[in-house]
């Protein structure tokens, strides 16, 4: 990464309004989490809804507070590869669970 690019990044980092906006977004989503937990009952999908909101919040934190939005491709690779590993872990664990043949009926 060149010096110029680094300066460019610093400019983005010092934009206070983006941080304020992100903070408000996180507060809003937290309120949304609480509201849906109290008011919305969609059975087994409750957890899915909660996880979707949590994932959006985590993404905002990673992108803006952790500056991922302004980083180079290599940093993105290191950020996204664990998500692929998480997918592997969940996919193969569920695949193993769902393909089990019951020994006792």
């Amino acid at each position: 990464m060149s010096i110029e690019n680094r300066d460019h990044i610093e400019e983005h980092h010092t934009n206070i309004w983006s941080y304020v906006f992100v903070l408000l977004a996180l507060f809003t989503l937290t309120a949304f989490t609480v509201l849906t937990a109290i008011k919305v009952d969609i059975g087994s999908l409750n957890i899915v809804l909660a996880m979707i909101i949590a994932s959006v919040k985590a993404s905002i934190v990673a992108l803006f507070f952790m500056h991922l939005k302004f980083e180079d491709k290599l940093t993105w690779l290191y950020a996204l590869y664990p998500l692929f590993l998480l997918f592997l872990l969940i996919f193969f664990t569920l695949m193993e669970t769902f393909t089990r043949v019951p020994v006792l009926k």
Binding site: F92, M95, E96, T97, F98, T99, R100, V101, V103
Partner: peptide, 8 residues
């Protein structure tokens, strides 16, 4: 041998 599925 932990009782996992044969497919896996």
């Amino acid at each position: 041998v932990s009782g996992i599925s044969e497919t896996a």
